[in-house]
Design a protein around this nucleic acid. Sequence first.
RNA 1: GGGCGCGUAGCUCAGCGGGAGAGCGCCCGCUUCACACGCGGGAGGUCGCUGGUUCGAUCCCAGCCGCGCCCACCA
Length: 804
Amino acid sequence: MEPRYDPHGVEERWQRTWEQEGLYNAEADDPRPPYTICFPPPNVTGELHLGHALNGSIQDALIRWHRMRGFNTLFQPGYDHAGISTQNVIEKQLAEEGKTRHDIGREAFVERTWAWLEATGRTIFEQLRKLGASMDYRRERFTMDEGYIRAVMRFFVHLYERGWIYRDNRIINWCPFHESSLSDLELIHDDVDDTIFYIGYPFAAGGEGVTIATVRPATILADVAVAVHPDDERYRDLVGREVVVPYVERRVPVIADERVEPEFGTGALKVTPGHDPTDFEIGRAHGLPEPAVIGPDGRMNERAGDLAGLTQEEAGERVIAWCRERGLLEKQEPYRHAVARCERCKSRIEPLISLQWWCAMDELKRPALEALRERRVVYHPESQHRFAIESLETAPDWNISRQLWWGHQLPVWYCPDGHVTVVETDPDACGDCGATELTREEDVLDTWFSSALWPLATLGWPDGTPELRTFYPGDVSVTAREIIRLWENRMIFAGLELLGDVPFTDVIITSTILAPDKRRMSKSLGTGIDPREVISQHGADATRYGLLKISSTQDVAFSYGAIEEGRKLANKLWNASRLLLQAGEGDEVALRPRDVEERWILARIDSVRATVEEDLSAFDFSHVAHSLYRLTFDDFCDWYLESIKPRLYAGDADARATGLAALERVLKLLHPLMPHVTEEIWSHLPARATRLIVAPWPEADPAHADAIDSLERVQDAAGIFRRSGVLVKLGDDEKRIFDAVVKPERVAANGNAAAEIERLQKEVDRAEKMLANDRFVQNAAPDVVEAEREKLARYRRELDALSG
RNA sequence: GGGCGCGUAGCUCAGCGGGAGAGCGCCCGCUUCACACGCGGGAGGUCGCUGGUUCGAUCCCAGCCGCGCCCACCA
């Protein structure tokens, strides 16, 4: 064994070995209790980023821990077809060839997408293998593989038959670039500098009229009313009167609606149901018409009269000029406000009324809300649990149709008479009239519609497979905050609706990793860090350790220091094992603690085991990493191994056998975090019959607990021993050694009894003062007072020993 | 506008009612037979500010200042 641990080669070797030996595999007929985690299916076109790496490290730590604890673990891999995102990639390729998707047609487009995926997609799981993620790679699924498509079709038909899927003309977010609707959750909001115009709408009967404020003057052409708040005293008398819309010179009513904000602008709102979501709601409530003057391409349409064909900006200018000429433009001001953009192409979103498919949420979300409130599913941290409930409560009906070509085409067919047939596979005839000339709905489903089925469909649903029976419901889902509403909540209601049970019991929301300088990681800022490089440079174990160490409930800065720490820990373990192995020949690994330091380290390991179990159960991975680092460096190496060196050098077989047994336990505790180095060391230990990855997790071992207290005080002086070049031999009477040997040595080594006495005197004074305080003695918890008394007694003893 | 969170050593962060901590960095000393990716020693902090609760507050409460994130249809 070399004196330096080098992860290169070692990690790849174990990854191959584990997989080849089938140790990642999960079997449905395994009688052990199941433990299931589905890796959130990454975009099929994507590459591993730090979010994946952190997610993978967390999930794999949980999986490996449970595997060692005797669970039949399934870590499920797979990809998402990622509708818009993938279509984007292909459209960009086409654009480089000077073409659009319409030039090659739908069939060729879809074919091309598949061909491209075959050639270049699906690389993330190769990268996750290099992280050591112990997934059952045989079970890789895709949201558009044959079985999965059946699941999606079944889900749609199921919801349709429940009466929850409907088609309606409603206002949606239209992306002019993708020429598709988008859900609210697929938007981003950006501040832009705009101009707000104040425009007078004269009374139809003549006179001043009312002034409104708008940033989109082009939409004036589609105004159907002016609305004010019902309690707005200023406008009370106006309600019911008619005003004239500028430019088009159309008479429209003044109405009252609570959705109007009296404080904003002039408190009077021009109502444009065709081009604004709020106005749309107001319009529906008042039964107003919904004219549209802007088309799907974002330009003015034929209903815009002489402005048809213009961009909105051009049309707006013409409208403003018209108003200015007639003295209707009261003022204009610079105005900064947020606008919605497509999260993929950044195009400005056009609110348009469009015929779309919808999924009603009221019935679907009710059982999910119940499950969340009863905590059958719990989000971690707790603040996210509240957010998840709130999000679900307020979830509007779901726009599930997209006007894209890449995705699951809706299982909806129309006959020439306009009858609608909804079935899972191509029907022969119209369900209503028997007509055989059917055309299929062109729209595809929102990508998240299929993602919602991930925990079920990957296990074979809608078929009643053994996998589904064994591994559903699963256990944990690990994901990022922004995906709670898009994905997690939807998996919950889909699972409850289709199988009557939640898909998992815990959802871990991971922290966002920022660049080391706390800026957002982004390619354009050049602040991105590629986890694949980190892994190849520092090793998978160090990367895993580092990511888990910095993980928390808030946003965290990436830290190479934490990765370094992981590397150091691996090296330390490696050398600790060398010390023990080189100290003798035998292949004995056995607990034969003779001296208190041996009982002490066993007790420490057991105490850390308990802490680690608690922290893993609470998903506090940072704390786990911290505890194990301290255990390895401070307790195991700096103190315990140092103290048994004399015995090891003397060839004491018991000391070696016990040391190896203790080392084994430490390796086990660390394996979920740093699987490779621990397995590698394990393989060097004598007579290893089994792999560490499937070795049993340490049992509770309280046998040596009493050794902790007695030795820890002596440990306090350990530094002195080593510095003075003396290796202390600790007998049963540690206390005697401490008082008689350690103290004087410490003083001698420091050459500084006065300072030590001063320090102790300060402690004594402090403790005496507290204990003399009646209110402290009466009010503080009894064990706190007792601890203080013990401290005082100890300080006094030490003080006596020094000054006496 | 709403929600969440954060301000502790030069940097990154842990601790969260009774002794101010870790990693990295810095200074001093060690080629001690596991490890210089190491060992020992050390410097460095009014624990954002102001009040309150308490015998006692970095820790609980309120306000303020600063920073970040998420959500949002104020035209």
